[in-house]
Simulated scan of single mutants.
Amino acid sequence: MPLSVLDLVPVREGADAGEALRASTALARMAEDTGYKRFWVAEHHAMDGIAGGATSVVLAHIGNATSSIRIGSGGIMLPNHTPFQIAEQFGTLDALFPDRVDLGLGRAPGADGSLQRALRKDLRGAAENFPQDVVELRALLTGDIDLPIRATPGLGANIEMWMLGSSLFGAQLAAQLGLPYAFASHFAPDHLDAALAVYRRDFRPSEALEKPHVMAAMTVMAAETDEEARYLASSQQQSFVRLRTGSPGKLPPPIRDYEETLPDPARRMLQHLGQASAVGAPATVRERIDAFVARTGADEIVCAGSTFDPEARERSLRLTMEALAA
């Protein structure tokens, strides 16, 4: 079972974006040395606690600091950009790091009105044009459709394109285009089973992919004991609660027995998200991942989950890989 890493480049309280980027680079090196297959960075904007907004720039730095692990976007929110811009950016990454670049694409712009104005984009209209933009982007990279312009770098780049999703829409589009599919079950598990069923049922083989290929995201936090892992995971839990209640910020330090301090609605929300999580000692993590793979039939698992102490995330990923390899 290939394991990969999804990183938000988290900015912790009392620190800045520079530290976050250095920590993510160190994490990528460790993931490569430990045997993880991919290191993906997610695009978020105007959030004090996330420093991965300029995703292709971050990936260039991480690619330069590593030598073999695949690097990619989990994902690029295509409505925020033009297909031509992304073809150039990821074509450049492929020229710098041949045969190592993944391009995961998402439809949700994740933007309010102020960000829409800052990007000079009609994001609602761009989201509606998402399927056409994906087809155009693929054509700019592969040349499978004759376009009046070519991206240089870009055309002919050996990039692995992925469709990301948390609903049936992404599953249907991935199946129609014959792309591998990554489901964001770590924060939106509601439609997981239905989306994977639709994707596998409707999949059409393409030049890029002969049969369906699924990667599912899990929140993974391993430590020496279950109690210590739950403690470390509380930073991520606090971030989820703050985001859902409209007060996002930098990644906070962990709190012991954090869930016990919460009102019932917040506690139920975290428990619901927990169906796609593996938090605990190595044996617990292995058991939870095995059960999740048995449920989903996933071909790969991508491990999400931020820690206040960057070294704790590195240790978590080492323990997880050791547990699954045992």
Rank of each mutant, 00 (worst) to 15 (best):
M1N: 03
M1E: 07
M1T: 14
V5Q: 01
L6I: 14
L6P: 01
A17L: 10
A17T: 15
R22A: 13
A28V: 07
M30R: 13
T34Y: 04
G35C: 00
F39P: 03
I50D: 06
A51D: 09
T55L: 06
V58D: 04
L59M: 06
N64R: 12
N64G: 15
T66R: 03
S68P: 07
S68D: 13
R70C: 08
L78E: 00
Q85C: 11
T92G: 13
T92F: 13
D99Y: 02
D102W: 00
L105R: 02
G106T: 11
P109M: 05
D112H: 03
Q116G: 09
A118E: 11
G125K: 06
N129A: 15
F130N: 02
Q132H: 14
V134G: 05
V135C: 01
R138Q: 15
T142Y: 08
G154C: 07
A157G: 02
A157W: 01
G178H: 08
L192C: 11
Y199P: 05
V220C: 01
M221F: 11
D226M: 08
A229W: 01
A233H: 15
S234T: 13
S235K: 06
Q238F: 04
V241W: 08
R244W: 15
R256D: 10
L262W: 08
D264G: 10
R268K: 13
L273A: 11
I289H: 00
I289Y: 00
D290N: 14
D290S: 15
A291L: 03
V293T: 14
R295K: 13
T296A: 07
G297V: 09
V302Q: 02
G305Q: 01
D309Y: 02
